Computed example of a mutant assay.
Amino acid sequence: MIIEERPADIGNFMVGRLLPFRGKRTVGPYIFIDHMGPAKLSDTQNIDVPPHPHIGLSTLTYLFEGSMMHRDSLGTEVEIQPGAVNWMTAGRGVVHSERTPEYLRHSDKSLHGLQIWVAMPRELEDAEPSFQHVEAKDIPYWEEGEVTFRLIAGTAFGRRSPVSVYSRQFFLEIHSTSEQQLRIGQELFGESGLYILQGSIESDGHTYTPKQILVAKDTSLCTFTIHADTTIYIFGGEPFPEERHIYWNFVSSSREKIAAAKQRWLEQRFDPVPGETEFVLLPDQGNRPV
């Protein structure tokens, strides 16, 4: 299956939406992927996503370029920089904002990265919210000839990322400086998707280029040619037995829990982000900050 990147508006910033897709709602536990940028922002343009809520998922923010300030209702305040991983687990409910750091707000800047939602196992959907920041230097990295690997989350190739995931999954970065044939199916499990950030790959006589996700029919047969100067991301894992529902920023195996979270946000009964007073309205209310 080939999923093309589609434009989506997240407020004052356009992104390329990759998941969910009408023909494929999830890949393993991965339920939502946005490709942010690459964007060049002037000294008067800034990213400002006001406080908004999540339930039933973990968010994974991974930047290739630029910087973003994360603040949440747990009291976390941390700057996300390229190569680091922000892993926020919503559980029963968390609120966060994402903004250009203060020191960059009056200068030219860039932003490029991925924002990902990973659904939680049903028995953990009501867990206490938590936050983990893993520096780039702590992400497992290795080389095999002219191919480099980073295990951003989960387990693969006998290695484990320090990111605290809640189900069997993997999220890998692979970069090659020369044309190579890769056979990695035996290292993967469950379902897998392949996203091309730059360059191209070839499989079964077809060439695939950036802004596409390829979903493998059989993970164990994951063999392809990666061309020179190509970077790809492979993600997936064991799918859950139950369907996951999505409404706005809420993910759950239960429609009732989503309805309850919607009402809780309408009544502003989520814990607030310290120091921030504006918030994003529900889509039914116009989805604009107040």
Rank of each mutant, 00 (worst) to 15 (best):
R288H: 10
M1W: 04
R244M: 08
E143F: 00
S73A: 12
R122V: 09
Y141R: 13
F32W: 13
V273Q: 04
L63Y: 02
N287L: 12
F13I: 13
I31N: 05
I139F: 04
R150Y: 01
H106T: 14
S252G: 08
S254D: 14
S58L: 00
P129E: 03
P283Q: 04
M120E: 12
F32P: 01
Q115R: 08
A261C: 09
Y247C: 06
A156K: 09
L197D: 13
V85W: 01
Y247P: 06
V280S: 10
I116S: 00
V147P: 03
A119I: 02
M120G: 00
E4A: 11
E278K: 14
I196N: 08
S203R: 15
V85C: 07
Q132S: 12
F240R: 02
G16F: 05
K24W: 00
A84T: 00
R6K: 15
E77K: 15
P101I: 10
G286Q: 07
V290H: 08
E238Y: 00
T100Q: 06
F189E: 12
V215K: 05
F224T: 04
I116R: 00
V165T: 15
M1T: 13
L18T: 06
K211C: 03
H245R: 05
A84M: 04
Y166R: 13
G37P: 10
R92C: 10
E238Q: 13
Q212T: 14
Q181A: 07
V85P: 00
G237T: 07
